[in-house]
Write a protein that binds this DNA or RNA. Structure first.
Lengths: 192, 192
DNA sequence: CGCGGGTTTGATGATGCTCAAGCCCGGTGG
DNA sequence: CCACCGGGCTTGAGCATCATCAAACCCGCG
């Protein structure tokens, strides 16, 4: 229970503490400075990473060259292009650090070795994918059914610390609105 | 290779033909008339279904009581609330037939039995979830980055037969626009 | 024939975008 | 230490997209 990753694992599966060390051996810690590109569109994703520090974005590029942010991964989140990683085929998304970040990395090989030694962890990875799926469902729903200021209010609930940490135009991109409009929303809100 | 389901399975994993009969035994065929509710918000999803005939929608209900359609499942698609099914907890989505439909159903028990006899099928279910995930990513992207008529054009490419089969207000809901506006889009398009 | 769900049409208005300009502020080089 | 630069945020004006409401229409069906 000593590291954030083991804490995360414990909320998915129950393991004996004797396994802790063994599990951690499969993960490789890596650090990146900010604005480091970890995956470009068309590349094959070679990692699944658990964020221990920092903030990372995954995004598409639209036809005008603008980012559309799919997810922010901060402490205790997983980051990867799941489909590209699992099947080792070209990705459609990009991944880039926003802040200087630290990850615990699995490669396809180390993940396979980890799972063959600790098959109970299959459950954790299944839950991880399910959570991502549910998150996308809710985001899609929100983008269709809610106005921008309600989406922003929900965002503040879910990520209370992010507005202090990252540029606002990234939040606008996540919410699916222009930076100018987010600025106006914030102004309107502060007047109340 | 004789049934649609086996065809689907074969594009995910390679199996000996000797297994075909054995696999099919775990699936239970069921028929539903149109407008049958298969899952309501808050219920626990008791099935994972492969659609062999008909058309089924999954949706959220927004704060005004309107549907927001998440997916259409037609022939050769899977339909379920994956998170609710896997963890047997209350669902956030609803599932309902649009047309009279036929499914091949797995329950939690029969799925477990199937996988313990044919563990290679794990891969198929993993791919199924991944495809759903990728589909939601692209829908979210489209809803943010594209105008309604481009989304409609993409919809027509992806589901060329659906406009002839189902009411248009359902397509509008899927696209995230009002039925009136979809009508105008179609009019504009026919003038060119 | 009338009923009812679905689609169309029109008028009006809200939401959110674009473009352009100004501002704030931290960093960098002279 | 200061001037300058540049990225990000704000503000304003005008505009496109799309929603809402109400009415008419269409058509299959009892």
């Amino acid at each position: 229970m000593d590291t954030p990753l083991l804490k995360y694992i414990h909320q998915c599966v129950t393991l004996s503490t004797a396994d802790h060390e063994g599990i951690m051996e499969f993960f490789q810690p890596i650090q990146y400075p900010k604005k480091t590109i970890l995956l470009n569109e068309g590349e094959i994703c070679k990692f699944e990473g658990f964020v221990t520090k920092g903030c990372i974005k995954t995004y598409f590029i639209d036809q005008n060259g603008f980012e559309v942010i799919l997810t922010f991964a901060t402490e205790n989140w997983w980051v990867s292009d799941i489909a590209s990683f699992q099947d080792q085929r070209p990705s459609k998304t990009c991944i880039e650090t926003i802040e200087a970040s630290e990850l615990l990395i699995l490669t396809p090989d180390s993940k396979e070795a980890l799972l063959s030694k600790y098959p109970d962890l299959e459950r954790m990875f299944r839950l991880m994918v399910q959570r991502h799926l549910a998150a996308y469902q809710e985001r899609l729903f929100g983008n269709i059914a809610l106005t921008a200021d309600k989406r922003y209010a929900l965002f503040l609930e879910k990520y209370p610390d992010l507005p202090q940490r990252i540029p606002q135009h990234l939040i606008a991109s996540y919410l699916g609105i222009s930076p100018e409009f987010l600025s106006r929303l914030r102004k309107r809100k502060s007047k109340k």
